[in-house]
């Protein structure tokens, strides 16, 4: 966006001129905004108000707080236990367990479903997130029947990051919009690793080499805690890679 970021506080009144209008699509409210009928929209958190006129949606971008599941979020969960036909999955230590049906994996039948032990990590999508209800997850796209990268995560290491960084990492153009380039820079330095970013503030890093995983984890942590700019991230990556060699 060309204009300066618009910061809102909980309970602020939003200037009606900022609310996008679209001929066909209905207005969609993202996290941090609440609609009070008939015609009032109020922020519920402090953060930056973002408006997307093309998708006719608006939301508040904020860092911190606890993860509250919402539908279509990609999350990294930890299997807590297995029940008759579903897994109970822990998304964060302070929320109720989410339910992941045994058959919500690619090509899973009663006999071929993956057997997950308590403590196993899975990459999943939230399908149901209502207030006062346990969220539900899936590891397969319900429309195509393909896994699309979701499923159990084997090996590697999961790092805890802030919710804001997880969100920035998940942005389609994370360099321009999210101001985070650290993973691309590490890849450009010739390190081979794969990542899975969970909206619930967890990043899974997998690699053949233990050193690489440790290095990626440190880079993420330092970027997060120091709130580094792209330029600082570049320096950080240079410094870390130098230590490695």
């Amino acid at each position: 966006m060309a204009t300066a970021p618009l910061l809102v506080l909980p309970g602020d009144t939003i200037d009606p001129s900022l609310i996008p209008t679209h001929r066909k699509q209905p207005l969609r409210l993202g996290p941090g905004l609440r609609h009070i009928p008939p015609s009032e929209i109020v922020p519920t958190v402090a953060g930056q108000l973002v408006v997307d006129p093309k998708k006719n949606s608006m939301w508040v971008e904020y860092n911190g707080g606890r993860y509250i599941p919402s539908t279509h979020d990609l999350v990294i969960g930890q299997v807590h236990r297995s029940a008759a036909d579903l897994y109970y999955v822990n998304l964060s230590p302070y929320t109720a367990n989410a339910a992941l049906p045994h058959l919500a994996f690619e090509g899973a039948t009663k006999k071929t479903r993956p057997q997950l032990l308590p403590g196993a990590l899975i990459y999943a999508r939230v399908t149901l997130a209502n207030r006062h209800m346990d969220p539900e997850l899936e590891c397969v796209s319900s429309t195509t029947g393909k896994a699309e990268g979701l499923g159990p995560l084997t090996g590697g290491m999961a790092f805890d990051v802030s919710l804001g960084l997880a969100r920035r990492l998940l942005m389609a153009r994370n360099r321009e919009e999210g101001r985070v380039e650290v993973l691309e820079l590490l890849g450009a330095e010739g390190l081979a690793f794969e990542t899975a970013v969970g909206r619930n503030g967890r990043v899974w890093v997998g690699s053949e080499s233990t050193k690489t995983i440790v290095l990626v984890g440190r880079a993420l942590k330092e970027t997060d805690e120091g709130d580094l700019t792209v330029e600082q991230q570049r320096k950080l990556v240079k410094r870390l890679v130098k230590q490695l060699r």
Binding site: L117, A120, L121, T154, G155, M157, A158, W204, T210, V214
Partner: peptide, 16 residues
């Protein structure tokens, strides 16, 4: 998680 447990032990074996 299991992954974290395994990884921390693996890394410690390599003095990391």
């Amino acid at each position: 998680s299991l992954n974290e447990k395994q990884f921390i032990l693996q890394a410690l074996q390599e003095n990391l």
